[in-house]
Design a protein around this nucleic acid. Sequence first.
RNA 1: GCCCCCAUCGACUAGCGGUCCAGGUCGCGGCCCUUUCAAGGCCGUAGCACGGGUUCGAAUCCCGUUGGGGGCACCA
Length: 416
Amino acid sequence: MAPSPTGLLHIGNVRTALFNWLFARHEGGEFKLRIENTDTSREVAEAVDQIQASLRWLGLDWDGAHTFQLDRMDDCRRVADQLVAEGKAYEDEGAIRFRMPDEGSTGWDDVVRGRVEVPNETIEDLVLVRSDGRPTYNFASPMEDVWDGITHVIRGEDHISNTPKQIQIIRAIGAELPVYAHVPNVAGADGKKLSKRHGAVTVEEFRKDGYLPEALVNFLALLGWAPDGETTIMAREELVARFDLARVSPSPAQFDYAKLDWMNGMYMRALPAAEFAHRLVIWLGENGYDWDAELVAKAAPLVQEKIARLAEFPAFAGFLFGDVAPDAAELDGGGAMLAAAADRLAGLEPFTAETIEAALRAEAETLELKPRQAFQPVRVAVTGSRVSPGLFESIELLGREATLSRLRAAAAAAAA
RNA sequence: GCCCCCAUCGACUAGCGGUCCAGGUCGCGGCCCUUUCAAGGCCGUAGCACGGGUUCGAAUCCCGUUGGGGGCACCA
């Protein structure tokens, strides 16, 4: 994988990186991380650390230390001089340009696209070394592929037009060509390049939105690849075991956030309760919520089946961690039920979901209310919302004291 | 303008000449379950871009059209 250190990792690049990683792990090869920093003017200081943090979070581990393209500046310079000496390149206003052939064509067998052939007359003499001595990407990149013994170059389809240029350079120095595979782009719902206006695009944003890395990886793997058309949920090991570069589709895929949400929900529900609670605690901590970890752990089982992303937790279970402000209009004339519920719960022993449910159902019957009519005002009063985790479990967790004060305040508001 | 790439339900895809009046998943609609919301179960909706070939036979092969994407930097 060869990102340029210009900012946060884009999800489209991650998908490409994932294909590289899956391929390398499946084949028992190595996955290398190279930072392409020959454009010093666009470099962002923290980018390298951020890129590595994102890859680690996703579990895409690379082999050996990461390398910097600019470190090969002198080596590139030497090769360029050699090419000039051989007449294969020439100086041009302080820069060095490669002499592209004018006739014939340059082609390769792309693993995902098949044979690609480009007429040489459409390829310009490209700059190898800038007038300030720094090599360009199109020169340094193939050179590094050769020096690092890269066997497979798996990259985005935007590099297709660079490939014949890089092939010509590698041929000029008499080295062996790597295998090329150009994977399709990832587009937004409108078919255009995935960008901010479509939603989250950087790994950090997905993390902040509460997606699980294993769900994101599973989803991304299916963007342009499928093992058989039937299997959808696949753990990391299964993805590695079944991944096949040749089965990657050549047509671009649209990023479907709704399907990602569904898949993330599947992964969250499949987590052991303790692990789910742990993830919640971590996420809350990373996102500025200073909530009691023990209470979070107790609330976790109540929400595990009901939310699709960790970030939904605060809105859904926040009533356990702070005051609520129910909308009087939503109490829906439940004054009698609210007051009676408070009375019933006041002396209830033990105070458990089971006994709470029995008490409230008994009251509903007394008042001749349907469950829905009876419980909804109570839910609004206690949780501050018409949508919440299970009512009785929520009340038990909230505790008698807070529940009674909320019920009484709401009863008063409903009566007013 | 030139070069390259792509084309199956709204989306992701299976399909690599007959077993496809096209299968799976998401979404969407309906029903069931139900204290809300979800989850879960059942049922349903919807597609081979178009036109020519090749062939006994085409979603599958070839050509063209149309549509979409990418690239034409001393960016990567």
